[in-house]
Design a protein around this nucleic acid. Structure first.
Lengths: 162, 162
DNA sequence: GCTGAGTTTGCAATTCCATTGCATGTTATG
DNA sequence: CATAACATGCAATGGAATTGCAAACTCAGC
């Protein structure tokens, strides 16, 4: 029959593939949440999924815009929950607004382990995590006991530098 | 005569010394302002002098309290002027409020040169500049061009640890 | 010393982000 | 399926940074 042409079959296959992909994505996000002892509610899955898609860190306002009409406060509280469970980390890049990005390593409620450099582009204003750039050793005056290090580099990013 | 005893002479000398010291201080602050192309108004001299006295960085609220009844906005604008002329630098220590400290090296309107580590004590909440602690080299991914580095260390300070 | 342009100051008001209270809706559990 | 615990959404609050504007001040030139 003409109705079962190769073209239509391709469309059906693509549709099925998309369904499976979405299911897998949802499964991944859901498992990720469960693995960190966070109830996988609809809202949280949407927020986390969107964060996982990003190259750069997002502010609360960014997320609100992207996920409209989701409630800002709910997103805010999701982020706080994620942060306390080691799923994402907030970044203070000096811009005055906190930005959020997913943790790369396996952080947990007891703390964040993937200490890395953050890079802020003065051109596009994006904030990137640079997990490959380890924070180097540095010396402190006698008596100062370091516990936590935050290294933010400003400059021009890969994309803007061309 | 008994009225010119050694004790009274000492008091007179101390008084004279204090007068000279205050004059020198005022002269120093005034010259410092002039050297950076900032009109040495009374308000600005008070703010800068107080900042020069500090071991730790001060927030706008700290300054307002210390210099009461000086106007907060005026202090704020003095700090902005100082910052743009390279006299002081603002520090974002992650606490959410900007703190200010005098520049050690000879910074100018074109930029701040004394790049150093900042240390925040989680006990006393003070923020210290550590000019002796140079920020070491670190590697960035290809294409990222660093221009400015901000290294904030949290921990326990000399005073609280000792 | 006086005047007037330019700068600085002080008050009031605004903006923006982060955070909380509370009532309602949803989920997990026995 | 009932109920406690948790999550959500709206409204409101709080605190810091910032701006507008009129009054006060500073300083150069007359």
């Amino acid at each position: 029959m003409h109705s079962f042409s190769v073209g239509k079959l391709r469309i059906v296959l693509i549709f099925m593939y998309l369904c499976i992909a979405v299911q897998m994505m949802k499964k991944n996000v859901e498992d990720l949440l469960k693995a960190h002892n966070v109830s996988p509610t609809a809202m949280r899955m949407i927020v986390l999924d969107h964060l996982l898609d990003q190259q750069a860190a997002l502010s609360l306002a960014d997320l609100e815009k992207a996920l409209a009409p989701a409630d800002r406060i709910t997103i805010y509280r999701s982020l706080r929950t994620f942060e306390s469970k080691g799923l994402v980390h907030g970044i203070d890049d000096g811009s005055g607004v906190t930005k959020y990005a997913c943790c790369a390593a396996d952080c947990g409620p007891e703390g964040h382990h993937d200490v890395h450099v953050h890079f802020v582009c003065r051109n596009c204003q994006e904030t990137y995590c640079l997990p490959r750039s380890r924070i180097p050793e540095f010396t402190l005056p006698v008596g100062f006991q370091p516990e936590e290090v935050n290294l933010v580099v400003r400059g021009v990013c890969q994309v803007c530098a061309g």
